[in-house]
Design a protein around this nucleic acid. Structure first.
Lengths: 340, 340
DNA sequence: ATGAAAGCGCTAACAG
DNA sequence: CTGTTAGCGCTTTCAT
């Protein structure tokens, strides 16, 4: 790293024998500069090794060329795909991506929203896990446009992209269709994921006139493989083993399946298992895991595009809500035959 | 998003009946301000809803409170752990993380280094895949401190963190120790990963007085599962099936194993397989994959700490090179018995 | 087509 | 302890 003696547009101007404003025009490709002056200046820029200071420019233009993506934890295998898609779109717009992990922690989530103004960003894509009370209010007071991933009512000043229906409803539907009659649930705290992962369970049962049994519900402390393992231990010890399990996500499903099999319980023969997220692991694990895809890459791409539209157009255009259709990918963990 | 009418420290100063500098002192927690004035100012800040403009501050202080992490592709399962660790350390220092994907593409890599100055960053953690010719030169001319992940000679003006020895050497060592005598290689282009992944193969053979056979080498177009699958097809068609495969990374190993088993070839009984990276998938796949860990989280944490040290101390302290000891995690893909 | 000058919002000497 | 005064490096009227 060479401590470049910060050459400014003033230095360039002097060297080229022109005014600062002329240099500015040239580095910003503003038309109406005589070729001969342009050449003089270009030469000076070259000789001095001038690099525009974008901070100074930002101060003037109030554009920061950065957006942020706030998620709970990039290590959750669902996010790299999302983050990648967002970075792609950002790059196309000449923007950079700031990555923020909030751990699904309510106070961290709000803290990000509260401190947004100090983040050098022109907009933010926000994915909430804990959906704190004050979320709407904070978003409505945000200093830059917000694009939400996930649904949050119509009285929020943010574009949104979310799924047409809870992923869980597809999972339950599938389990019923393949003939399960005693379906269990395994996941993290009920209120997480805005409560929808769990809610789909109760709803799925009632829609199909199946009785709800408290014993068939396992609630772990998070949505990790570890929770799946604990769920397997719990469910296996039940007087009556369920014949299907709706796992709140694929990590839980994978842990669950693994432990069930260690215990000699066959998947899907004895118990069919369906997860949510369709992370790549699901097709690597054995048996491959049936899962509901929430379209991570697609979601990221669309969210980023909505955000840039908003950044460009400001409040002038009305808010968008883009809905994506979740899909179930049927694999070995829920059917007897082997599938691709 | 409320279009706050940008209230500045001048507004606050006027409202509180003090000078701008006093306001500045207060928002920067500079001691030596009478409590009563502080209160007046705090009140004004509150009433006006003043938020400091960090861009303006940056222009003055030349500190941007951001670092960047440049990697090839966040979707490679090795990186989320790394990125997460880096973001943790950054957050501890009150910094944000800019994520840059360069796709292991030489020109993209150089482009990042060249355009660093416009990224609002105080430093960058750089991981090269393609190691272009001009890399050193670009790094030495960088406008902010660079911390390299991976080794790149002593004449580079950058702190570095890298492994004490190529991961591949451990992989080869292990295969030999468990009795393999006809070892194959499967990976992406030889020159990638600075050529070390492949080099370890030839070296491992020669160290153990094993003949090199061109036929035992499969070079795919990248380091994906797809390459592993192609490698399996290729190796299975060989007149003599190898009894061990050193895969350049876990994705290749997983694809390879999966396809071998589809073909009725048993792993590890017929062919033992070892991968590199120890991504979490390796313990989820069946059989679980033996892998050499390159300590992603540890690497990220240390790189970030070196970078912050450098940002704080400038050129004053000498360059550091931290070496980490890779470890092999033996799992089912290379031993007959089941292991945890 | 180019120059002069006035800031963007903040920090940091230097006075007082 | 607080106020005054210069800028940081750039963009952008407004003149010329």
């Amino acid at each position: 790293m060479t401590k470049a003696e910060t050459v400014t547009i003033a230095d360039v101007a002097k060297r080229a024998g022109v005014a600062k404003s002329t240099v500015s025009r040239i580095i910003n490709d503003i038309p109406g500069v005589k070729p001969v002056t342009r050449n003089k200046v270009m030469k000076a820029i070259e000789e001095l090794g001038f690099k525009p200071n974008l901070i100074a420019r930002s101060l003037k233009t109030n554009m920061k060329q950065q957006i942020a993506l706030a998620i709970d934890d990039i290590r959750n295998p669902f996010y790299p795909e999302l983050a990648w898609a967002v970075e792609q779109v950002a790059k196309e717009h000449g923007y950079r991506l700031v990555l923020l992990n909030h751990y699904g922690n309510a106070s961290e989530e709000l803290s990000i929203l509260r401190r947004m103004h100090e983040m050098h960003i022109d907009g933010i894509i926000f994915l909430s896990i804990s959906y704190p009370q004050q979320l709407k209010q904070y978003i409505n007071h945000a200093s830059v446009p917000v694009c939400l991933i996930g649904k949050l009512g119509d009285d929020v000043n943010a574009d949104m992209v979310y799924l047409t229906k809870p992923e869980g409803s597809l999972a339950m539907e599938h389990l019923v269709r393949i003939g399960c009659t005693n379906i269990a649930y395994a996941g993290g705290p009920k209120h997480m994921h805005q409560g929808t992962r769990y809610a789909s369970y109760e709803q799925g049962l009632s829609v199909n006139f199946m009785p709800f049994k408290e014993a068939n519900v396992f609630i772990g402390s998070d949505f990790s493989m570890q929770t799946g393992i604990q769920a397997a231990d719990y469910l296996a010890a039940l007087p009556q083993l369920p014949d299907g399990v709706y796992a709140a996500n694929d990590l839980v499903a994978i842990g669950l399946i693994q432990r069930l099999m260690e215990k000699g319980i066959r998947v899907p023969e004895d118990v069919a298992v369906v997860g949510v997220d369709d992370i790549s692991w699901s097709m690597i694990a054995r048996p491959r895991v049936t899962s509901v895809s929430n379209l991570a890459g697609e979601t990221g791409r669309i969210a980023a595009e909505l955000l840039f539209k908003r950044i460009k157009e400001g409040q002038s255009t009305s808010l968008s809500q883009v809905q994506l259709e979740p899909r179930i990918i049927v694999r070995e963990s829920s059917v007897k035959v082997t599938m691709a």
